[in-house]
Amino acid sequence: MDAMSLLDWALDGVLAFVVLWLAWRALATPTLFLAVVLFIAFGVVLALVWARLAAVDVALAEVAIGAGVTGALLLAALVRLEPTMARGQAPAAEASEVRHDD
């Protein structure tokens, strides 16, 4: 009983740590592209959490919609928003309000 419970806790702990770390990195990483990729990863790991919490439907939905569709939308938007930095760019460009001419 205790061992199982300990294993449970370990699993929960690792999952929680990964989820939080991914979320933090997705929000803090300097490049937007990387941020979106991390966010998709966050969605996938979150789906594991749902499965762990016996919410299988939610897990499937999270993979398909939360990570999949949202990720695709974010990437598509990123291409239109920051054509130059869709792939690894100087971090400063994000925060600065350079006026693009188009």
């Binding site: 979320a23 929000l27 937007l32 979106v36 966010f39 939360g66 974010l74 994000e94």
Partner: peptide, 9 residues
């Protein structure tokens, strides 16, 4: 875009 990410999280 970052704000949208934040809201999703």
């Amino acid at each position: 875009l970052r704000k949208v990410l934040a809201l999703n999280i």
